[in-house]
Amino acid sequence: MAESHNSLSGDRFLAYATLTPSAFVLFLLAGVPTVTVFLTSMQDIGMGETSGPFIGLDNFIWALSDPTFYSALWHTFVWVFGSVSIEMVLGLGLALLLNRTFVFRGAARAIILAPYLVPTVVAVMTWRYMFHDIVGIINAVLIDVGIIDGPLLWLSSQSLAMFSVIMVGVWKFFPFAVIALLGILQSIPQEQYEAARIDGASPFQQFMRITLPYVMPVFLLTALLRTIWSFHKFEIIYLMTGGGPLDSTTTLPILVYLKAFSDFEFGRAAAVAILTFGILCILLGGYFILIKRAEARQ
């Protein structure tokens, strides 16, 4: 009796002792900052200051009545949905391809997954060199083939900059979708396909009736994760264009950074950051409903 009681209380002690460091770190590095950011968002903070007088919700009112907020919101949606939808379609296609058997499959897989492992700053530098107006390979090839007459300003024209940035984002992050989808594709029971083939189903029908429903929950979950991360994504856009030319690639995270560390308006930056997180949470709610439905259907 006594011994079992001892081991139980010993267990409880160990349970709390092992969890405490994590709880402490998360509290200090996520909990406290979240509270601080709310407090900051309600202060009028001048240049070089880190706190100031309370002004209630004025910073939020400023953000919601400022056109730069809405244009940043629009750019964020273009960036997120542009890159995530291309990534997911490309990712599914390549996962289906890599799921087949062929010689050098290991090597092909390594090359296709490589962009995901490359540090963002490396991806950005390489692409910026390739996108270069004059010495870049992309313009050189396109002119050589005859698709364009003169060099395109991939990063310094307002109409092309977002497209170019999305291209780099897709290149860097589509392998995540490939990895996730390849995992689920490999777990589909092969008997299902055999049964479908005996029943005379065409490859297209097999894809629509077996493959697609099977991968759908993972597909949506992957899209969800990619949406969250690209919503936050700061450095690809910052390093490619710095949010420019003018504000044509300024997404919400870029706006937060510029407000805080270039205009030094911490209060307003905090308000925009909170609004960004709020919008993301609404999006997540939508995704969760979709995923639940897909799981229920399966």
Partner: peptide, 9 residues
Amino acid sequence: LPEVLIVLP
């Protein structure tokens, strides 16, 4: 949590 949210505090 977005990095840009945490980086301010």
